[in-house]
Design a protein around this nucleic acid. Structure first.
Length: 335
DNA sequence: AATGAAGGCAACCGCAGAAGG
DNA sequence: GCCTTCTGCGGTTGCCTTCAT
């Protein structure tokens, strides 16, 4: 190593490309192919380093580049492959025709990664985060929801009126959501000892990715059972292909489909809406049905089909929160 | 309407590995 | 086998646009 960067050579232009430069590069490559990137700029009459030319070509000028928003299928694929491959952007890009590694990397860093973090998942391991600060947004949301519940039940008359005018149903739905949230946190605790995906040998990860793709990725239409979608190395991980797609047609949820709020209690609702979109978790309507019917007090039975947490949520009853904060009056009172 | 903050994206930088002599 | 050169990849930066106040 120790080789000086190619762009250190004096006089070479850096920064944004002009249309004229694009045209020169495009015409040269279309006519001659790129050949040696190092000699290309001189031959093409460009005052750029070869590296810059290659980047411009592969990330922007290449004719097969697909532009525009990522589709739901592409999002699912990225999430799934990232859970298996990690930050191997070029490998991930190889499975997404027309998408560049740079584009995928940017999309991950600006969208998907943030969503995982906001939902309390470690974006590197795709597992629920177990530290307190990761759960802080949920705690805040819980507090807000509790206030809402308390306000609704201020007086018996008010409470009865709420139930009559439909507000009671909303509260029941929110209670069901809350219980689901508790399940998530429980699964977080259950996966504390699990090893991170990053420890998986690269060839195993590649093989797993190939197997997953060859055997068919988790169908966005949900035609394949979520358990079948899990590749071996990510069997106890959360997102990957077990992420359900966003509710179809929810344009108001934002341009990417997956819904997130800006903070506070809205986050919880949005997160649940996303989870309930049709993947391995029951749709929100199911939760509300459970709430309206005979909602179990263990908080997890309503989501018994969930694959989250590697079985922790399905095999062990709650209470989860009192284990974390046994003396916290808010927790004990709320539960 | 102005201004600051945040988000999104294109491009750069430096490292690692492959290829060739 | 060693050294040099080239290519590709992942991380990071900085600019531009959009949004919020």
């Amino acid at each position: 190593m120790g080789r000086s960067p190619c762009c250190d050579e004096s006089g070479l232009k850096k920064g944004p490309w002009t249309q004229e430069e694009d045209e020169k590069l495009l015409q040269y490559i279309q006519k001659n192919g790129h050949g040696s990137w190092r000699t290309l700029p001189r031959l093409a009459g460009l005052n750029r380093c070869g590296k810059s030319c290659r980047l411009r070509w592969t990330n922007y000028l290449r004719p097969d580049i697909k532009r525009g928003k990522f589709s739901q299928e592409e999002e699912q694929t990225i999430l799934h492959l990232h859970s298996v491959l990690g930050n191997k952007w070029s490998a991930i890009a190889a499975h997404l025709p027309g998408r560049t590694d740079n584009e995928i990397k940017n999309f991950w860093n600006t969208h998907l990664k943030k969503r995982l973090i906001q939902m309390g998942f470690d974006p590197m391991t795709h597992r629920p985060r177990t530290d307190f600060f990761a759960a802080l947004p949920q705690l805040i949301a819980l507090a807000a929801l509790r206030d809402q519940l308390a306000a609704a039940g201020d007086t018996p008359a008010a409470g009865a009126q709420h139930l009559q005018d439909g507000a009671g149903v909303d509260l029941a739905i929110q209670a069901a959501k809350l219980q689901y949230l508790q399940c998530l946190l429980q699964s977080a605790a259950a996966t504390t000892t699990a090893s991170p995906a990053g420890t998986v040998a690269a060839h195993d990860a590649e093989a797993a990715a190939a197997a997953a793709l060859g055997g068919g990725l988790c169908s966005p239409q949900g035609t394949q059972d979520s358990a079948d979608c899990l590749v071996p190395v990510s069997g106890s991980q959360l997102p990957s292909c077990t992420f359900p797609e966003a509710p179809v047609g929810s344009e108001e949820e934002g341009d990417q489909g997956l819904s997130y709020g800006g903070g506070g209690a809205d986050d919880v609702v949005d997160v649940f809406a996303w989870h309930g979109g049709g993947g391995s978790l029951p749709p929100l309507a199911d939760l509300s049905d459970a709430a309206n019917n005979n909602m179990s007090t263990d908080g997890c039975s309503a989501t018994a089909s969930s694959s989250f947490g590697g079985g922790g949520a399905t095999s062990s009853p709650l209470p989860c929160w009192p284990e974390f904060f046994p003396d916290d009056p808010f927790i004990t009172d709320f539960l």
